[in-house]
């Protein structure tokens, strides 16, 4: 972006920087101020909690205990197992969700009949609270009476699959529900992004005789890139932290095969009252996922700038 902006700027770069720096502050401050007040404090509190032995209890005393939580966590096989499940879940859901949503967004961007209806219907999963989604899917996936198995049966396909009850397939099934639940958000985001791709670019390419596929690959996709980066990053984070859906669907079962790390940390804090230890898990998640994201964002920036 700088590469594009700097040479075209009619003003002297130095002065521009100082006054614009102030303008930037003026514009950003109203957003940052409430945020500082209401999010930095709880976040810092939460992060610091990860270095204490805080426990639930009336008048319970809390002490800093350095890295004790982390040495304990290093040997906590269950946590790392759940971390692994979280990675599989987060990447699978994010990637599938992105591909499915991109396809849908491209379709919804076309001038098709009843587009308004399709666009509205595409939003359905989003309009329902996660708890309702989970209850509904449980019913749909009921092995004996659910519509999913009944539909399969009427098509003559195997229809006695115990979708959520078998440890070998529970995670993939939960992933599909996760994709379903998160699709509207990604679709709307990408659709809005597609609308921001200046039509001229496409028209210019069309005049040049570029094929649909080539235009998509060389014009649309690069223009969408900042939005794709932004939404996949957030999707990954949210999926890694997702909680309510799986909590109601399987509560981590069967046999712990869908125990996501946020469920695990939640149990540690809310059920066993080990706030300090749970916050340490949160910190580990921040560090590991954060490191990955920085690498990902760096790579995206670099390829965008080149």
């Amino acid at each position: 972006m700088t590469a594009l902006a700097a040479p075209a700027s009619p003003r002297a770069p130095k002065r521009r920087k100082s006054t614009e720096g102030r303008d930037a502050w003026l514009l950003v401050l109203p957003a940052l101020l409430p945020v500082m007040l209401f999010s930095v404090y709880p976040l810092v509190y939460g992060v610091l909690l990860g270095f204490t032995d805080a426990e639930a209890g009336l008048n319970a005393e809390t002490h800093f205990n350095g890295f004790d939580n982390y040495t304990a966590l290093a040997g906590n096989e269950l946590f790392w197992n759940s971390f692994k499940i979280g990675l599989i879940w987060a990447f699978a859901v994010t990637i599938l969700q992105f591909l499915a949503s991109l396809g849908l967004a491209l379709l919804l961007n076309l001038d098709l009949r009843l587009r308004w209806l399709a666009r509205t219907l595409a939003l359905i999963p989003w309009a329902m609270p996660p708890v309702i989604i989970a209850i509904m899917w449980q019913l749909m996936l009921n092995p004996n009476y659910g519509p999913v198995n009944r539909t399969l049966a009427s098509l003559g396909l195997p229809s006695s699959i115990n979708w959520l009850g078998e440890s070998a397939i529970a995670l993939p099934v939960v992933i599909v529900v996760g994709v379903w639940a998160g699709m509207p958000q990604t679709t709307v985001t990408l659709l809005a992004g597609l609308q921001s791709v200046p039509a001229e670019l496409n028209e210019a390419a069309a005049i040049d005789g570029a094929s649909t596929w080539r235009r998509f690959w060389h014009v649309t996709l690069p223009a969408l890139r900042p939005i794709i980066t932004a939404i996949t990053t957030l999707d990954l984070i949210w999926n890694f932290n997702s909680f309510a859906l799986v909590f109601v669907l399987t509560a981590g079962g069967p046999g712990g095969t869908t125990m996501l790390p946020s469920l695990f940390a939640y149990n540690e804090a809310f059920r066993y009252g080990n706030f300090g230890y749970a916050a340490a898990m949160g910190n580990v998640m921040v560090v590991l996922i954060g490191a990955f994201l920085i690498l990902y964002l760096r790579a995206q920036m670099r390829s965008r700038n080149s």
């Binding site: 509190y45 939460g46 909680f243 939640y266 998640m285 996922i289």
Partner: peptide, 14 residues
Amino acid sequence: LLSQVFPFILIIIP
């Protein structure tokens, strides 16, 4: 990023 990665459930209490 930090505010989104840190599990929301854990900042609820503070």
